[in-house]
Amino acid sequence: MSGSCWRMASCTRDRLISVFFPLALLALWEMAVRLQWLDGRFFPAPTAVAAALWELTVKGELLGKLWLLPGLVAAGDFSGARKVFAEGHLWVSLFRIFSGFFVGAVPGIILGVVMGMNRTIRVALDPVVSAVYVLPKIAILPLVMLVFGIGEVSKIVIVAIASFFLVLINTTVGVRDIEPIFIEAGRNYGANRRQMFRHIIIPAALPIIFSGLRLSLGTSLIVIIAAEFVAANYGLGYLIWFSWQTLLTENMFAGLVVIMILGALFTSGLQALERRLMPWQREEMPASADGADVGGTGKV
């Protein structure tokens, strides 16, 4: 991302640089492999990675055998249609990330608000939360598998646990750090409990809650890839791990590229959602000096 640019000319220049420099790097990489400065077995050329990506897609490994879908749906075979998605590494990982994220984030927000508001509950839970928070979540994967088995549930649970604590801690901080004057204003103007939540506590804490969501979505991606390395037959993590074991380095790099694209999409998706939900956070210059139209002030 190029930073803010004010003048049109420097704006275009920034954009050109930000596009051409990475392209130049890729070209350099390609050249280095072709001239055999780099070992193509370990660092396959960008064109080889692109070819592998294409190959994975058309063979139905990455996205499943999508071309079978119309026929299956027409035949009313919905379990067959579901199986198509269940065999695509990308869909499998996405499903685990989003269901785990959702299952973790929603209770995280709710308990976070409660902990932010209620001193007793906060004091009681704080040590437990802090202790579990510092634990790398992937470290408890064996325990989770012991409890939930080696199927889908374990992967969703591990993502949910990781999301839960990040969202919980951020929400608690967000609610605790609300300026007391906003609460006072709410009380003085007669807000009841429900109105206090809706009009003051939630919107005031929303920016910090969102930074918790952003962090936990990023962490979900890390956790699911790591979990799929060791305990899965599908998923992007499995794709990378399996490609390494069979020395298909092009496929390994193809997996990395997909993960990079996912990360970028998550970030920009959340940013778009933030702009929609918090229009008051949009960067804009304040009105100059005191721009109120004093002239238009009518007599009372």
Binding site: A287, A292, D293, V294
Partner: peptide, 20 residues
Amino acid sequence: RKVGLAKFADAYPHQLSGGM
């Protein structure tokens, strides 16, 4: 309108000066 902010009714506070 009485406080002279008619043009800013739909603005958010961060778009306003301290006096406004």
